[in-house]
Amino acid sequence: MKLETVLQRIPCTIIVKGKGFDELDLRSIVASDLMSDVLTAVDDRFLIVTSLNSEQVIRTADIVGAPAVLLVNGKQPQNGMVRLAEEFGITLLSTPLPTYKVCYLLGCFLESK
């Protein structure tokens, strides 16, 4: 799934354009508000969907090699989060939709493929 698909299907604002923004390919989605859950993922190159808006999300993304983070429920990033996302080259998005809606919309798309 291309990042472009996410941008088309989910109403969201782009906060940080990370490394390779234009041709980003996402292999899957991990949705959680607890970062150790995200750190159990064996894959990399997935989209993190979370309502947690702290620096720890970006640090976690960097460790597991997740190139993009989507904040749900209209959450705005805390101060340090944007700076860190820029430093690590991680794309940061924000949507007013709740987690389940995001997963439903993207899930339908992934299933139909």
């Binding site: 959680s32 607890l34 970062m35 150790s36 859950d37 750190l39 159990t40 947690l52």
Partner: peptide, 17 residues
């Protein structure tokens, strides 16, 4: 602590894995 994103109880198992 959970509101800060910790407390899944997965840290030690993760580290061990």
């Amino acid at each position: 602590i959970r509101s800060l994103g910790f407390g899944a109880g997965m840290g030690l198992p993760n580290a061990k894995r």
